[in-house]
């Protein structure tokens, strides 16, 4: 247990030691950004849109009981921007990207491709880990913004269908309900989520063993561990933001 923690610490510390110093693997970083960002767009678009519609639809009856359906845009805005947007994006990314990183690196480990890089005097950590962690850390916040926008559009369509609100009024209420702190908190969370997904996937893959069984295990534990950590981080960031707000 303590040995494992020490290894995790060393793995993360190595990232910070290597990320700022050359050589920089720009080509690989761009390739990974494309894999993480662009390739996730179709899934994120559909999921975000559906979540916006479903959340709005499920919230309406509660507000109707108090005759407060006019507050729906504000409610959707706070829920999606503060929590649902970053969390849903991160969960989808950890399923799609985290598992793929874990499996890819795990497969490279068991087929000695990582050793092959090392014996050719190439730093496999820099090429494989730094590039992937940077890609997830940069692209998850971008995907979060995109998911938030798509979810709000889904929410708007539902609100428009039942309350005949115009898009201008809807988004006026959306932005009126959130503060600068909400945007900052959401951004910080998504950066943290991106770093976590990349780091967990890389760690599990980089240290995988036991052949094909190990590859499957690396992919699986990448997702499970990342998701667990995402919720823990969500809780911690929420507490910190509430403390800042004085709640």
């Amino acid at each position: 247990m303590f040995l494992e923690l020490a290894r995790v610490y060393a793995f993360i510390a190595r990232f910070w030691r290597e990320v700022f110093f050359p050589p920089y693997e720009f080509k690989e970083i761009i390739k990974q950004c494309y894999e993480v960002g662009v390739r996730s767009l179709p899934l994120i678009s559909v999921t975000g849109f559906i979540i916006g519609i479903v959340f709005t639809n499920q919230s309406r009856p509660s507000l109707q009981d108090f005759g407060a359906t006019s507050l729906l845009p504000a409610l959707i805005s706070v829920a999606i921007i503060r929590a649902i947007g970053p969390l849903v994006t991160a969960i989808i990314a950890s399923g799609r990207v985290g598992s793929s990183i874990g499996a890819e690196l795990g497969s490279m480990r068991v087929t000695e491709q990582i050793d092959a890089m090392e014996v050719s005097a190439t730093n496999p950590y820099k090429f494989l880990v730094v590039s992937r962690v940077l890609a997830t850390t940069l692209m998850i916040p971008a995907l979060t913004m995109y998911t938030t926008l798509v979810s709000l559009l889904g929410g708007y369509l539902n609100v428009h269908q039942f309350e005949q609100t115009t898009i201008v009024t809807f988004f006026y209420q959306v932005f009126d309900a959130i503060t600068f702190l909400d945007i900052i908190a959401s951004s910080v969370k998504s950066v943290l989520f991106g770093f976590t997904i990349g780091m967990v996937g890389c760690y599990k893959g980089y240290y995988s063993s036991k052949g094909t069984e190990g590859v499957g295990k690396a992919a699986n534990t990448s997702v499970v561990t990342a998701m667990f950590l995402l919720f823990v981080e969500e809780l911690i960031v929420m507490q910190v933001i509430n403390a800042i707000r004085g709640i």
Partner: peptide, 20 residues
């Protein structure tokens, strides 16, 4: 070690080609 490794070629049992 990296400088030394440039003078050593290692042919792996399963070739270890980068499959991507």
């Amino acid at each position: 070690l990296d400088a030394l490794r440039l003078k050593i070629g290692f042919s792996f049992q399963n070739s270890a080609l980068y499959d991507s």
